[in-house]
Amino acid sequence: MHQRKIQNTPVSLTELGFGASVIGNLYRVTPAEEAAAAVDAAWQAGLRYFDTAPHYGLGLSERRLGAALKGRPRDEYVLSSKVGRLLVPNEDPRGVDSEGFVVRDDLRRQWDFSRDGVLRSIEASLERTGLDRLDIVYLHDPDDHWRQAAEEAMPALAELRDQGVIGAIGAGMNQSAMLARFLRETAADVVMLAGRYSLLDQSALDDVLPAAQEHGKSVVAVGVFNSGLLSRDRPTEGMKYDYQDAPPELVARALAIAEVCERYGTSLPAAAIAFPYTHPSVVNVTLGMRNPDQLARNVELHRRTVPEALWDDLRAQGLIRPDVPSVALTARNSTG
């Protein structure tokens, strides 16, 4: 699978990445053997970028991912995790986690973007994964913690990067405005942008993507299906958009885009995966993959050829913004 380099770092990512939130029992239980099989299938398909976080299943995702990768050549893959939420004993457990993961709540999350919190979080992640290093570390959802994240956490990560302990550093969020600040004002190399550069939302063209180009930095795109509305060939009422029921007007627009995709011999989800690569700063699209079937489908969608003329047609019809750049996608289909 073709790889792209995070600018000005030694880290290269396969164009498709494995998002491990779902193997942390996001929304429903994923059996351990199914999670392990998903990682195995990803490896066999050529994926070499794996992303996790302490938040995902209160450490379950990190433990499962580390176990599945253990024994594989460490220099052949890139592992990212995140800091900002320490896992600490829960003095008042209710039985099940309250933040969307079907796991026991013996632990709870504690916000901490201090230097000490960053170092403790990385050490705990290494213990849970059982691996020797993290290649990328992101600040995780620092929306309400800009000052501490920018003034304490990011300098601590930069020090580790400059010592060669970490290959690249950045931040991951569901908004784009603050991510642009991280690119412009801090030592971040890369940002994980969730849902803000998709077929239905190109708001990152106003901030994150120009900042990345201006400063020679990179973007990993996640949430490209916008919580599900772009995940099926023909979207319908009742599908989710940004974790809520999709408004009828967005369902209609998604359906209109789907019809254009069909005329070009492709599909809405294939175009949703290909779309972020219209911008040269995007180096990877990472998708959540719960089992081998989901893995196989996503890999097949990624490998479909999406004609560049599709973007021209969508622009002409006002279905995507007119300032979406035109970038040849030949490299996307490379297996080099």
Rank of each mutant, 00 (worst) to 15 (best):
300 E>C: 12
203 S>T: 14
327 V>N: 15
37 A>Q: 08
201 D>H: 06
47 L>P: 07
315 R>E: 07
314 L>E: 04
69 L>W: 02
331 A>D: 15
194 A>C: 09
305 T>S: 09
100 G>M: 04
256 A>L: 12
79 L>P: 00
88 V>R: 14
176 S>T: 10
326 S>M: 12
25 N>M: 05
263 R>H: 13
183 L>S: 00
196 R>D: 09
85 R>F: 15
292 P>D: 03
256 A>P: 13
236 T>P: 03
289 M>W: 06
323 D>V: 04
83 V>P: 03
232 R>C: 10
122 I>F: 01
289 M>H: 10
53 A>E: 03
24 G>F: 12
263 R>T: 14
204 A>F: 10
92 D>T: 14
325 P>E: 03
117 G>C: 07
264 Y>C: 05
217 K>W: 01
284 N>I: 04
59 G>R: 11
335 T>D: 09
247 P>R: 04
321 R>Q: 13
135 D>T: 08
319 L>P: 07
53 A>Y: 02
245 D>N: 11
302 H>M: 15
93 P>A: 10
185 E>M: 07
41 A>R: 11
55 H>Y: 15
100 G>H: 05
172 G>I: 00
124 A>T: 09
261 C>L: 08
84 G>L: 03
160 L>Q: 02
285 V>N: 15
50 F>K: 13
319 L>W: 08
159 E>D: 14
13 L>K: 05
40 D>Q: 14
196 R>W: 08
89 P>V: 08
317 Q>K: 15
34 E>C: 01
335 T>C: 08
96 V>Q: 15
34 E>R: 11
113 F>D: 09
295 L>R: 12
270 A>Y: 03
238 G>W: 15
125 S>A: 09
310 L>N: 00
92 D>F: 09
152 E>G: 05
60 L>N: 05
10 P>C: 03
135 D>C: 14
157 L>Y: 04
301 L>I: 10
333 N>M: 10
313 D>W: 01
60 L>F: 00
88 V>D: 12
287 L>Y: 05
288 G>L: 14
185 E>T: 08
85 R>S: 10
37 A>V: 00
230 L>S: 01
232 R>Q: 14
102 V>E: 13
114 S>W: 08
184 R>I: 06
226 N>F: 03
211 A>R: 01
198 S>R: 06
307 P>N: 12
335 T>V: 14
332 R>A: 05
25 N>D: 12
27 Y>W: 06
255 L>I: 08
318 G>A: 09
154 M>A: 05
333 N>R: 15
61 S>L: 02
210 P>S: 03
200 L>I: 04
114 S>V: 15
118 V>K: 02
196 R>K: 14
